[in-house]
Design a protein around this nucleic acid. Structure first.
Length: 276
DNA sequence: TTCCATGTTCCGCA
DNA sequence: TTGCGGAACATGGA
């Protein structure tokens, strides 16, 4: 589930509830979530360190840990079902996706903080990961990741430049993290719907107006979702995101929504608004 | 019980 | 080389 907006909300969550606190203990309930370090290695990399900063690129979240002059980063990827929660003696805050009634489920890693509170990483399906990164700059330089979709430096000109040499269907291109980082299945569908572009159209067949619309909607859809704190119910009624189920009807044309596998993912679109 | 899932990666084929 | 379909990964809800 977590695409760029959700991961941005997770980042803000860390800033609000975790940043500035020292990690006193770590519990790894399922070592498979760790990519690289052993549970002991993770303990060594975190215990005694203070959470001092955060970064995000696409769907990847980086959390900086500092102890004196020593510093490194934790990398979180949330797969399809990952999220954070935080709790102390008085309250529990479940972030973005967790069902408060089931908040104790699927805790893969728990960090105990120096103020007595606890920060937990949940990941039901184990597609997510947690890694330790020594040098964030070189990691990002070597990672096969495109520019972050919401990075202000990724402007219209850069967007058009990036897409102009590509040939495939537009939807898989939008979801390709090495082209643009952060767009997943749901928000790709939404921006295509808002621009009335069929998801199977070729990038090379799109008009300049189509591409400019996609740029605008990429920013709008993602930013609106961040502003909604990733609560999809808060998004405009005119969004197709509310109609991702069989028998749903297009919010603009009232046409039954089509469901088709495109680029390997379940795709929702309006066959009347989005013509091939 | 079977099918499906919002992410990523790898393999094989054209 | 590029594009693309399919499978695999692990888990549980419908």
């Amino acid at each position: 589930m977590p695409e760029l907006p959700e991961v941005e909300v997770f980042r803000q969550f860390v800033v609000r509830y975790v940043q500035g606190k020292r990690i006193d203990a770590v519990t790894v309930n399922n070592p498979k979530i760790l990519q690289g370090p052993s549970p002991q290695g993770l303990q060594k990399a975190t215990i005694g360190y203070t959470v001092s900063d955060t970064e995000r690129r696409g769907k990847q979240l980086f959390v900086k840990l500092t102890q004196g002059k020593k510093a490194h980063w934790l990398l979180f990827h949330f797969g399809m079902t990952g999220y954070f929660s935080w709790f102390d003696d008085k309250q529990t805050i479940v972030n973005a996706y967790g069902d408060p009634k089931r908040k104790q489920n699927h805790i893969r890693v728990q960090f105990d903080l120096d103020d007595g509170s606890h920060w937990t990483f949940h990941e039901q399906r184990m597609f997510g990961k947690l890694a330790v990164i020594d040098d964030l700059k070189s990691y990002l330089a070597e990672a096969d990741l495109g520019p972050d979709a919401l990075d202000p430096a990724f402007n219209e000109k850069a967007f058009l430049e990036r897409l102009k040499s590509l040939k495939g269907q537009i939807k898989p291109v939008l979801m390709n993290q090495s082209v643009i980082a952060g767009i997943g299945n749901v928000y790709a569908d939404e921006m295509l719907f808002q621009c009335k572009i069929h998801p199977e159209r070729r990038v090379t067949d799109l008009s300049p107006a189509d591409l400019k619309c996609l740029y605008k909607q990429m920013k709008d859809v993602l930013q609106k979702t961040v502003d909604c704190n990733a609560d999809r119910d808060c998004l405009p009624k005119s969004y197709l995101i509310h109609d991702r189920h069989p028998k749903a009807k297009c919010p603009k044309s009232n046409t039954p929504v089509s469901i088709k596998t495109i680029g390997g993912r379940t795709t929702y679109f309006c066959p009347a608004c989005q013509v091939l």
